[in-house]
Nucleic acid binder design. Structure first.
Lengths: 218, 218
DNA sequence: TAGATTGTTAATCGATTAACAATC
DNA sequence: TAGATTGTTAATCGATTAACAATC
């Protein structure tokens, strides 16, 4: 009893590339193309054709020799893998600068995620709307989460508030936390956590900038 | 003529972890500790002690058997590696939701990056201040960049505007681009690019959520 | 057919983990 | 000394790259 497609475990690196494939393919589709070769996809994403073919192969997508991959099928298939066809729901906690930006970020909607509501401790924000989303008091989160069966929590609170807010999200019933707080979270095993660490990106850039100018002498 | 410390090439994975070490170490310091073992650091970051020792070793940091690493030295050393002691300067392009949030994001300042100014095409924004940063018209970017010798460009414009804005940043003299646009950039080799792809994080979370409940039958 | 492009196995590379000797 | 913790080499694991046969 092997191998329904979803038994194949996609590697993290492959998953990370799927949304990028999607964007390129949508560009191709918009320009009227019907088929795309692994070479064409790869060159637009600074990848090798081999990695593209492997990613698509693991995703269970079949191409045609000499023509490449049928773009509409490919798009549909990738969207299905990252579950864009069955949109998920989220609560956002912490409507500060970053949180407010995410409330209005179209990329989230495009990724099939609907933010139902946001929560904050700041009485100046509670009751207001930000980017069309209502801001509620933190106390309401558990009851509302259970009532609406919300799936994902977007954590945009400061470092010190992160652990307690994450716990509240878990009590509210989320099964995944998208963590922008830079704080390491200890959550029950059934809750998936993805840490978004902006300072990592800055560190990479900073080192690239400062170590790069060293010209090889040999 | 080998091995000044900076000849050692740190791996991307190691660099990504350095800011996380920094945060834990600052917590330790705040709670009055003087030394930290690789085990203590690792347990706070869900890492193994071995990976911590290796990262610190590659960073040229020496610990003491039986005591661990001297926290103040360690902090100073890591800050030096990611160049927090010589802050760099940035221009931000695209003062939309995400861009505006980054203008007010304290994490950037903490990482030693000063945003000098922001640029936008929207005449409604030009001349205004957002989070204490002046918004200028895009046309001004080249002259201002060269005058101020700005090092990093933070690209927060929509997908379609990304290539031309990135080119303008290069003309303004930046040597690194922190790219939030989701668009693949083709820039000269001397310009470092770091892509921040939020949809990758969402894809990982979405797949974790939807493929995880599958209970093993064997 | 010839040629281009896929599917798939094998080789390489890099990062993590294991093991253990060195040291305070 | 005994014991804990580092520094460092070796083994494992996973992801990328190379190679090439299969196919349209």
């Amino acid at each position: 009893m092997t191998a329904l497609e979803s038994d194949t475990v996609l590697s993290l690196s492959t998953i990370r590339r799927l949304p990028r494939y999607l964007r390129v393919l949508q560009d191709f589709a918009a320009s009227g193309k019907e088929y795309a070769s692994s070479e064409a996809i790869a060159s637009h994403l600074h990848l090798t054709p081999i990695v593209v073919r492997k990613d698509l192969f693991f995703s269970g997508i079949i191409g045609k020799p000499r023509r490449g991959y049928h773009i509409p099928c490919l798009i549909a298939h990738i969207e299905q893998i990252i579950h864009l066809h069955e949109p998920s729901s989220a609560f956002l906690v912490g409507a500060g600068n970053l949180g407010s930006a995410l409330l209005g970020y179209s990329g989230i909607t495009k990724s099939g995620l609907t933010i139902y509501a946001a929560f904050d401790n700041d009485s100046g924000k509670i009751g207001r709307m930000i980017c069309g989303k209502q801001i509620y008091a933190m106390e309401k989160i558990t009851a509302m989460g259970r009532r609406l069966s919300v799936q994902i929590g977007i954590l945009c609170v400061p470092y010190d508030a992160a652990p307690s807010c994450a716990d509240l999200l878990v009590q509210a019933g989320v099964r995944g936390v998208w963590n922008f707080s830079n704080r390491e979270l200890r959550l029950p095993a059934h809750v998936a956590v993805h840490n978004e660490d902006l300072s990592a990106g800055l560190a990479i850039l900073s080192i690239a900038l400062n170590h790069q100018p060293k010209k090889a002498t040999e």
